[in-house]
Amino acid sequence: MQSTTFEQLQADRTAKVPVVLAKNLRTGAETLLYLQGKKGARGWPHQVAEAARAALLADRSTTIETAEGPVFLNVFNPPLRMIVIGAVHISQSLAPMAALAGYDVSVVDPRRAFATGERFPGVHLSHAWPDEAMAAFAPDLRTAVVTLTHDPKLDDPALAAALRSDAFYIGALGSIRTHARRLDRLRTAGFPEHELSRIQGPAGLDIGARSPAEIAVSILAQATERLRKRAA
């Protein structure tokens, strides 16, 4: 690997930019490819840039055959992120579970009595209002957003911000009735139906979960399903 390629790869990874290192296994030629933009793709078959994008979305390194020989696409995605709105009981289970599954977890709750280090040891906490917190976090394709407060003042701004982002998973806790009212409010706020359908509500796979920890399992399972099956 050339030192210039290596240094750029390391810079991208530090900056948390999703990047693919493409390597022609016959000629040794190499380049870095990104989700957007044609930078790096010059001189490479169009097919390579497209396959690189698919590999990033699937988070799976792979080799493709081209006219110039086999090209290995090594995927370097930044860590998954999960933004949890509400420092509630379920969050106390969800945060450590999601961390085990590879997520950088942040819990957002302006109510300081809820979001405390004692209740959330080792978890990144934000006391900002959800709209400010979401603007700061800037959810991307590798981000899951979960709202758990049941309080429209806190959940709604976070959901609106999530809908305007590329977040791969948006889950909102609440009964079917609560969720219907929530969708009505977001509809009034101008979100079209196909965007509202991105919200999983009530959040979580239907596995009969009852305890906070079981509900956390169902939410993490649903996020995993969205993450791993969307590109399949």
Binding site: S3, F6, E7, L9, Q10, R13, D59, S61, N74, V75, F76, N77, P78, P79, L80, G102
Partner: peptide, 18 residues
């Protein structure tokens, strides 16, 4: 999955190279 284990490997490689 590339994200979890690679950082340290390449970081160490860069360190050795330097």
């Amino acid at each position: 999955m590339t994200s979890a284990q690679n950082p340290d490997v390449l970081q160490q490689a860069g360190q050795w190279r330097r």
